[in-house]
Design a protein around this nucleic acid. Structure first.
Lengths: 185, 185
DNA sequence: CAGAAAGCTGTCCGATCGGTCAGTACCGTG
DNA sequence: CACGGTACTGACCGATCGGACAGCTTTCTG
């Protein structure tokens, strides 16, 4: 792992657990065993460091949305599965965006995240749905993100087998997001 | 509304939308039309201000938990309803605790919040359940909290009728938390 | 070996942070 | 009128923040 990637990994872990504003460049430098000035040699600013961390995940999300747009129709079951895989792949970035997106929406990369999440919600055409449907969407994705954040924070990576988490999240999300398909109890 | 209460309300709104660390005493003072020194006259420290904001909600949660303990058994449906009402009553505090509890758990009042949430999870005996059950709990409460945070941030208070929100959240939470009672589709 | 480039650092800067303190204006009460 | 508390303020403090910059090594390359 290059020094550049190592710094990105360290910063991501700190941003996700302690918050962007609360994580100083000095702390990142200490964890990496170098000086603050060296961190700013690799990344021209703290904001740029954040952008390089978050953008890859947003790129993947963008690609997923585009592929759905091109397909013309949304196959819920299929989308939920790919979405969950994406969340798991970028599971450290998820809480960062979810928990601090509101606070940092003046930062370009976080604004991009907000726009992408809005497009996801429009994909489900739930933005114009009933209050219940809107809340189902919010609870589903907010809930998954929060759960991943908590798991990440408590270090349950080893304790909770990731494939179990995957199938559980799939079931929960499917229950919440595809209400039309499951019979009323 | 006394000056003291007014400051608490202003600070709560800022803490919830911008975060505790990112909200300076100077900003609170500006919003209240007074000097920073005056804010520190009313509240001996920034942490104390946070505590006075969060503790009333935690007191209510504590009382709810105690009443369940005394009842001996947990009636899921009943508890969920009272819990949702509590979340709605303190809906500005919820995102504050959920989103920033992890970051600020060295602050006593936030640590108290963490302990109380743990007791709630134990109430459902889901802490020792399967991975699926653990995740159901996380998704449910994380999702509700995130949704309330988003609604608060986007100013949907007027747009989303609160009684509609209440019944919708009840339905969603009940679906997620009382899986044994709803027949498999 | 020479010199360019990359990696890294100590030092300094202005701004802002939470918090302290002496002092001031206003208040109801004797 | 005098006075004791309440509300409030400007000035100041040390610490820390993100960032700029000149200069020092190390490494790569012709």
């Amino acid at each position: 792992m290059s020094r550049h990637e190592e710094l990105r990994a360290i910063a991501l872990a700190e941003f996700a657990t302690s918050g962007f504003a609360a994580t100083s460049l000095q702390r990142i430098a200490d964890l990496a065993g170098m000086s603050k000035a060296s961190v700013l040699y690799h990344f021209e600013s703290k904001e740029r460091l954040l952008a390089e961390i978050v953008n890859p995940a947003l790129d993947d999300l963008d690609a997923l949305i585009v592929s759905v747009d091109e397909a013309g129709a949304l196959r819920h079951r299929d989308f939920v599965e790919r979405f969950v895989d994406l969340l798991l792949l970028h599971r450290q970035v998820v809480p960062l965006v979810i928990n601090q997106g509101a606070t940092l929406d003046d930062v370009p990369v976080m604004h991009r995240a907000t726009l992408l999440m809005r497009r996801v919600s429009e994909l489900f055409r739930l933005a114009s749905g009933s209050t219940l449907e809107k809340l189902r969407f919010g609870v589903a994705f907010g809930g998954v993100a929060y759960t991943l954040a908590a798991a990440e924070r408590l270090g349950l990576n080893g304790e909770l087998p990731i494939d179990e988490v995957r199938s559980a999240l799939l079931e929960i999300l499917h229950d919440l997001l595809v209400p039309a398909e499951h019979p009323i109890a």
